[in-house]
Amino acid sequence: MAETRTVARTGVRRTPTTYVLRFVVAAYLFLLVAWPVSLVVVHTFEDGFTSLEGILSDPDVVTALWLTVRVAVIAVVINTVFGVGMSLLLVRQEFPGKRLLSALIDLPLSVSPIVVGLALVLVYGGRNGWLGPTLESAGFRVIFSTPGIVMATAFVALPLVIREVVPVLHEIGTEQEQAARSLGASSAQTFRRITLPAIKWAVVYGVVLSLARSLGEFGAVKVVSGNVLGQTRTATLMVEEKYLNFDQQGAYATAFLLAMVSVACIVIVAIIRPKEERR
């Protein structure tokens, strides 16, 4: 009897449990993510477009936004070149210490942003860092300046491209590449004509994720930037500053702009993903 009942149950897709589970999951995600995030939108548009117009006509905010965009783009370019190169090395080459390196690459994802900032200050700090004083006497300032912000941002987003590209490289194998090589293609040609088209979507996916992560970095940037208004204050630092100075409207509006970009990144990825799998 038990047998027929369970067969019937697995045969029919939907049982009351299905609906209970569905409801629990939807309610959990609504309370934890959807509702809070939507409130930021509500707060931003409470007085129509005035608070958005307010921050966009504030030169300090505009400077901060530009700095954030510039830093994020540089960090993403560095991480994309480094990431694709490193993925090729990790998947296609053999060298001593490869396994250790492959494990260490993931480290930036689980290191506290404050520790990242501290680590960079200890090496590149102008007064008593390991390399900082030498670099600074050569006229190159890292900490409390844009290069430091770029490094902090590149650090925290470092593994994202690699994590996307490595599995795809494993999956496509080396047959086509070897065929191209045996037909006389140079390694540059093989990469451009065979490998790159195959990993294209993984790279795009990694770039979008890195961009979202880079635009939003806060803790590491806070430590290395010095948070100087109009010079090294990024958009995320601006949100904190505005909130602590009781400019809630400004804080919500700036947060709204940042949230928009990151949600856009997620949606783009959600659209790209199935396309990549169809290929």
């Binding site: 993510v33 409130l39 930021v40 635009l215 939003g216 949100v239 804080a251 949230a259 990151s262 949600v263």
Partner: peptide, 22 residues
């Protein structure tokens, strides 16, 4: 699916502000 990824992409300071709103 999109909701799951939002905490990963949202800047942490914005995440704090978002939670504070509710």
């Amino acid at each position: 699916e999109v909701l799951i990824d939002i905490p990963f992409a949202l800047p942490t300071i914005v995440a704090g502000l978002v939670l504070l709103a509710l």
